[in-house]
Design a protein around this nucleic acid. Structure first.
Lengths: 230, 230
DNA sequence: TAACTGTAGATTGTCAACAATAAACGGATG
DNA sequence: CATCCGTTTATTGTTGACAATCTACAGTTA
């Protein structure tokens, strides 16, 4: 059951997408302030390219929603409001619940593979907790959920979730050291994993809903510290 | 608590987005064959613009997924397989179920407004059924669902669904006169509307799931006629 | 002093020409 | 006759320059 095409699509990756990926990573890592204007000429030379390809990449990110474009003004980094946070996590909940049901309906070996990957991620999370590396922790947090959704094999669901993951990282970015109690974070992910492994549909659904609910609470409770406006 | 910016973002609509919207409409109306290459120069002159802005628009549509880009080859119209149809409708089901719950949790006047809009659409559908205008019927079909999701007010959910709606119209396009029995189509939408109006959570959920299930059956049962490859 | 207006600067939007790559065709060769 | 290879052609990828627009600042005036 190999996928030989996977190598082709990777080797012939369009330029605009490559630039978009680099830029997305820069943005979610906080290289730009929310609301800050993106200077095309400066960024183009910084990424060793021209304005043309860069603009194409910017359009992609505008379509994703992490950049907003204003005519004759340029593109700006998305400013997240409390309403945005609620929206993002509402959609994430919908996607993850769908993924959960699809996953449980799929074969046991599919579930087993996903469970194995998730366990590895949680192990890494525990490691980063000790090191108190928030940046890495945020990345692993989203990697856990992205892997979870990837388990379904639904490419559209995966693509949608990748965008949501980027936005979520932008949310978390504002928190920095204010990340909620980290031991609880690991516990919640472990709980999701346990329910998945046990095939507990009801429990898994509840765990995901609780996880999202808590995240919204943490992200909207302290607007000042998170740099999030009402 | 007015939002004066809303008018600004509408008046200053970026060019690439305008072109992308035109192109999307052309594609879902069947102006291009699935798998067909999109010639940049020809399209640019046809749309009274240059290759630059057009390429930016193409990137947006690639991000949406209705076009696929291959390096040094160009962009091609998405070819839908049976697997794609299953994916699309699985995601649609997830989004609509989420929308249903959100809608029922919102205020009664929010529901009433949405119900009113949906009723108008169904009335138009019945009209087009008599006229046997398949193109218009397909548009109204998706308009019904888009309006349903729009009722939630979740801009991200809406954006996601608009992409799914475009892909769905591409699916339906292949059917043409083979559109499933039209009276049943109207009935199913009416059923969804009734459950929403009655606030019947369980019934609404069932109706949506049945609706999607039937659609996938119709779209994958006759691959030849639909121009869909296995 | 405050408000208004005109100018200057910078930035984006658009375009046309150039370079690079891949597909298509025709001919040579086993 | 099929296969392989070089040439041709069309298309995309990239670049730089030009035009249009907006913001900011300075000067003027009530």
């Amino acid at each position: 059951m190999a996928a030989p095409e996977a190598t082709f699509v990777l080797e012939g990756r369009p330029t605009a997408q490559l630039i978009a990926d680099q830029l997305r990573e820069l943005i979610v890592q906080g290289a730009f302030r929310p609301g800050q204007q993106v200077n095309e000429s400066a960024l183009a030379s910084q990424l060793n390219t021209s304005r043309g390809p860069l603009r194409e990449a910017l359009q992609r990110l505008c379509q994703e929603g992490i950049l907003v474009s204003k005519r004759n003004r340029g593109v700006f980094v998305l400013e997240l409001t409390a309403a945005d946070v609620k929206e993002i996590y509402a959609v994430r909940e919908a996607v993850e619940l769908a993924a959960a049901h699809t996953l449980l309906d799929s074969g046991p070996e599919q579930i087993a593979t996903t469970v194995r990957e998730l366990k590895a991620i949680i192990k890494n999370m525990a490691k980063q907790v000790k090191a108190s590396d928030w940046q890495a922790l945020a990345r692993l947090d989203m990697q856990f959920h992205t892997t979870f959704v990837s388990g379904t094999g639904n490419t559209r669901l995966i693509r949608i979730y990748e965008t949501l993951a980027a936005e979520s990282r932008m949310c978390i970015l504002g928190l920095e050291v204010a990340y909620p109690r980290i031991d609880v974070l690991v516990q919640e992910h472990q709980k999701i994993l346990d329910h998945l492994e046990a095939g507990d549909r009801q429990g898994l659904q509840r765990a995901i809903q609780r996880h999202m609910e808590k995240a919204v609470e943490d992200l909207t409770s302290d607007p000042e510290a998170a740099g999030i406006s009402a």
